[in-house]
Each structure stands twice: as C-alpha cells, then as structure tokens.
Nucleic acid binder design. Structure first.
Lengths: 187, 187
DNA sequence: TAGTGCATGTAACACGTTACATGATTCA
DNA sequence: TGAATCATGTAACGTGTTACATGCACTA
C-alpha cells in the first residue's frame, strides 16, 4: 500500500524538504511509528516526482553542493487527503520479537527468563523516561495548552502515544516478573 | 536476523508440526506478535532442514495425501536457546500506519479527524473485547492459577500483553477524542 | 458433487536493509 | 587538517505479500 509514499507526502504538506531532511525526520520524532533509510527515500522521491505528486527545485548550498528541495503538488495534496481520511482495519499482526520469546518461555529455565524480562524492563523504562522528557520539552515549547489548532498537535499525539506504549509495556513486564518471582519450584 | 527461523524452531520445540500447522498457528494466538504466509514458511523449512536444525518424516493422511511432520534437532534446540537468552535492544521503530495519520492531523479538518479517531476506537474496542474473551477462555481451560510451570504460561503472557496493548491504545484514542471535542473554533 | 479445509510448492513483485560509491561544508 | 555532518545516488541482498498451480479429504 506504499505507506512511505504517504509519509513523504505528509511531511511535505508541512513544508519543503530535501531527501536528507526526510531521513532526519524519520530518525527523530516520527521514527517511533515510521521510518525509512535514505536508500529507500531517494528512489521513492523520483517515483513521486514522475507521478506528479511532488516537484523539486535544485538549490545550491554554499558554493557547489546541490540539493533538491521538494514540495507537494495539488495532486499530491489530494492524494494525501484521500489516504488520511480512509478507514482501515486494525492490522492482525504487529510484530514484536520479544513477545515471540515470551511465548516460548517454557524453553528457558526460570533464571534465564527472569534475566531476559528484567533486561527488557530496564530498557523499556529508559525509553519511557526519554519520551517523558521529550514530552515535557514540547509542552514547555508550546507554552499554553496544546489543542487541535496548535501546530504541535501532531507531535503531541505522537509523543503521548509512544509514552503510553512504553509505560504499558513496563506494567506488563513488571506483572510478568512478579509471577516469575512467585514461582514454587517442584519438590 | 531471520526471526521466522526462530519462530519455527520455537513452535517445533513444543512438538512436531507440518508446514500447514505452522501457518494455522500464525493465524491464531501467535499471530498477534508474529506471522508468516505459507509461501514464506515452506522455503524456510527446506532451508532449516538443509542446515540441520530440523528434520521431517513423511506421513500419509487418508490414503494418498502426504504431509511432512517436522521436528527440532538437538542442534536446533541449541540454536533456539541461544536466541531466546540473548539480550537485544528495544527497536527504535514499531510501524503503525494509524499513528502516521495522527501525526499529519493538521492536514485534515476537525470533523474528518473526529471520524477517523472514532472509527479507530470502535475497531480497537472490538479487538480488546475479543482478546478479553480469549483470555477468559484460557483461564477457564487452565483451571487454577497460571504460573511459570504451567504449559499455558506462554499463551497467557501473549494474551495479557495483547489485551494490555489494545486497552492502552483505546485509552489514548479516548483522550485524543476528548481533546478534539473540546476544540474552540476560531471566531 | 460442490464447497471447505488440508496440504505443498513456485513465481513475481513489493518493501526494507546493508553496503558500495562519491563529494561538499562546517567546525574544532 | 581531520572529523562530523550535509547531500545524493545505486547495487545486492533479505524479507514479506500476492498470485499461480496442484491435488486429496471430508461433509453437507
């Protein structure tokens, strides 16, 4: 369904960007929920240009370095809007390698399972703390309350969801670790 | 990192299965966190057999229909165990197309955003209800309390995590919808 | 006997990552 | 002047989906 196509259109709808800029965006905030490497972005930009959804102007940076600043066309805006407002089913599978290990927990012994879950909890806690800090920075930057009209609303939604996701994972890991701690070894 | 390889080894560690059986498992419980189509499974089974991690016996079903019952080798068990107990970093990106739309919310008008979020909430609620029912069925089937020693523990972990995941998504959607409802249109 | 499910496989294509390849700019 | 960052592209490979292809078993 070419989601990268829409990710690019959405980014360009907020303003002109180079391919390099997009790569950076995927590494930053947006990266919690979508990402792509430059090797995938550049060919997609070419394709979208050919299809007429975006266009570019070559800009000289410094004295020689060329970069292509892309912007969205009217056709592109229409295409983006159509995707945005379309209802889609919830995906059946959201892949999670750690949960696959959890499903196979019976192939580990108790101490190994405890170590695995404890490691995961510490890493998830760290990520949650990082996201919490990001959210506090955003709230400070945005000043008063963030609402639908705020230019930061999209970013706010992203961060609150990512934080909720990590916190939920931590709660579950903690509950699982408690069950492991309660284990009664067979006599 | 060939995660499908380990998913297959993990499934076979619990008992012999045909390729068809594995496809069914991915459609059922395990499918919340990992899945693969038969077109990907069959070549992987061949590869794992060549590598010596699994082996098969051809069984006749009925009078003619042949099926290959795979089982894990000692080498395969060692390989599985190594993967299971290895600590890995939390992935930077867990892709979520809906969250990409949420990030681009400013390209929609208020009514469109409300409709999109309301649709997603109703679908997520439905999925949460389905998972809750599955969890209750498991608890009933397992009888007394489920612990590390229970053969259902892996399944229990999977279901509780999947349910927590959907419930968390619902809470966030509800909070977002409240913010959209509170919108003060500019005079 | 027709439809659904069981059972296995390959081919073509789409999506994604790693590696290869090059060069300019900025700042310490 | 060396390192990090800006900037763009292609090639090879790995993963994942859809479509093509076939045939048996069960049951309504």
């Amino acid at each position: 369904m070419r989601v990268l196509k829409y990710a690019i259109l959405g980014l360009l709808d907020k303003g002109s960007l180079s391919g390099y800029d997009m790569t950076s965006r995927f590494k930053a905030e947006l990266g919690q929920f979508w990402s792509a490497k430059h090797s995938q972005i550049y060919p997609e930009l070419k394709k979208l240009t050919d299809e007429g959804f975006i266009e570019f102007k070559t800009v000289i940076q410094g004295s020689k370095l060329e970069k292509k600043m892309y912007s969205i066309t009217l056709e592109g805006k229409r295409e983006l809007h159509e995707w945005l407002t379309a209802f889609k089913p919830v995906p059946d599978t959201v892949k999670d390698e750690f949960m696959l290990k959890a499903y196979f927990i019976s192939a580990m012994d108790l101490e190994e399972a405890k170590a695995l879950f404890a490691d995961q909890l510490s890493k998830r806690k760290e990520k949650a703390a990082f996201l919490k800090k990001k959210l506090e920075e955003l709230k400070e930057e945005a000043g008063q309350s963030i609402s639908f009209r705020s230019p930061h609303f999209g970013h706010y939604l992203l961060l609150t969801r990512a934080l909720e996701r990590e916190n939920g994972y931590c709660s579950w890991l903690l509950a699982a670790l408690e069950m492991l701690a309660d284990d009664q070894p067979p006599a």
